[in-house]
Design a protein around this nucleic acid. Structure first.
Lengths: 253, 253
DNA sequence: TCTCGACGAATAGTATGACAATTTATGGTA
DNA sequence: TACCATAAATTGTCATACTATTCGTCGAGA
């Protein structure tokens, strides 16, 4: 899959341009936002840099000014850039970025993700997920338990080697979150979890998992089912630590 | 400051429309996004609802289609809505909203904030901030401590009754976060803290704080300075619990 | 000489109208 | 009945003109 298509200038036009392609169903401004977003997250544009003017840049990308502007609006909405008349569009300091935005996370992981940032995400996950498990142990309903049980069964049957198996894994974690009845917690943990899973999946192609994660999942489930908040917290903690180990291993090589 | 200006139809035009005004410096599409965002967060548009078409709606708001579309892009970027040809723009299920986005939080608190949502934010804060304090105790540098000390001094001098005093309070908490050296944690905690502070500030106009928060802040500082992670965690925990008490009190009346 | 204000230029912001692309619904045909 | 072509509605993209905002500069006056 190519990211950039170079097309030739036709001799009487301007400079050759880099087209922003898109798969079917993807919008043009979305593709532009993706391109700019990854460029910023990868450090290609550093905080303080000002992008070349709208007219010029849209011409370079071979898109209309409207499409380019809509893309910039997206970046602005995520705190990556700021536009002012006479000044231009400049990249904001990293502290203003919405680093927990799902798209921003995706852009961050599109290239080589910054190690310290990944470590930070794991740290956050290690804080939030055990606490979530504890809350889930206190508040879970019968239906939550059923979903967890079913997804664990699917995990056992399919293993993490298959996509369906990984889906079951995600389903289990989602069920735990849902059981907390805390929307903010759900949203946060879901995006972090997704981002973190990308790293492992990205790095471990073709490599067998170092250890069967099912028993640990079972421990979490049983603690939640028993309503034991402390046990749920510690069990989830070991689960997160295990994932961290795997990722550390994968990123080291 | 008026929020809506009603202007008369001129007799041959369409129906009278509600203009979206804006203060100087604010962009039109930003104002529209704010209006739509608060409308969605307040439940005026429920998940699943489809907004009237771009042409119609932009005419109703008396803005160009471009401005309206840019506003919708912002909402899309924050996971509030989704647009598809032939279908229209519809409000996404709440689970897709980026509830931790600063703007979304602001919109949520623009009207009467949902009690359970506020409770959830406090819960999250009670999870994250003590852990952050613990990390800060382990990683703080000399400069971090200096900033904390200075802001505490400012707090004592100015008290929380003044805006400058509250700024010093925020500065202290920011310093604690900065000391964690975890970007994701910083961003998260900062937005939650901001949102949560709005509630107290919003509700407690003219009412004296029930108790002097400075001693508890000092405890946090001392624990961090001493490098005692456990003590820092528990001290921060009591600080958060105290804030929760205040807010509960304020929202009850 | 310094300060303040008016003016001008550069850039993003808004408006308008036309056309393209996408997707659902409809209806017709095998 | 199932499937495929076609139509219609809506968003998506484009091009262009004009407006508003902001910074820098230049000049007048203290």
């Amino acid at each position: 899959m190519t990211d950039i298509d170079i097309i030739e200038g036709n001799g009487e036009d301007e400079t050759p341009v880099a087209r922003v392609p898109r798969g079917t169903g993807r919008r043009l401004h979305g593709a532009v936002a993706h391109k700019l977003g990854t460029a910023i997250l990868s450090g290609e544009y550093a905080p303080g840099d000002t992008l070349s003017g709208e007219v010029e840049f849209s011409k370079t990308l071979d898109v209309s000014r409207s499409a380019y502007r809509e893309a910039v609006q997206v970046l602005t909405a995520k705190g990556l850039v700021e536009s002012r008349p006479k000044i231009g569009t400049r990249v904001l300091p990293r502290s203003r970025w919405n680093l927990l935005d799902p798209d921003v996370l995706a852009w961050a992981f599109a290239g080589e993700p910054d190690i310290t940032f990944v470590r930070g995400l794991f740290e956050l996950r290690a804080i939030v997920e055990p606490a979530a498990a504890a809350l889930a142990a206190e508040r879970r309903e019968r239906s939550d338990l059923k979903v967890m049980k079913d997804s664990l069964a699917a995990m056992r049957r399919l293993t993490l080697a298959t996509e369906a198996g990984r889906a079951a894994d995600r389903e289990f974690h989602d069920a735990v979150l849902t059981a907390t009845r805390n929307d903010a917690l759900i949203v946060l943990s879901a995006s972090i979890g997704a981002a973190v899973n990308w790293t492992t999946q990205f790095k471990q192609r073709g490599r067998a998992l170092p250890r069967n994660p099912l028993p640990d999942h079972m421990l979490v489930y049983e603690a939640i089912a028993a309503g034991n908040a402390n046990a749920a917290s510690t069990a989830m903690r070991t689960l997160v630590d295990l994932a961290l180990e795997d990722t550390k291993l994968a990123m080291a090589r």
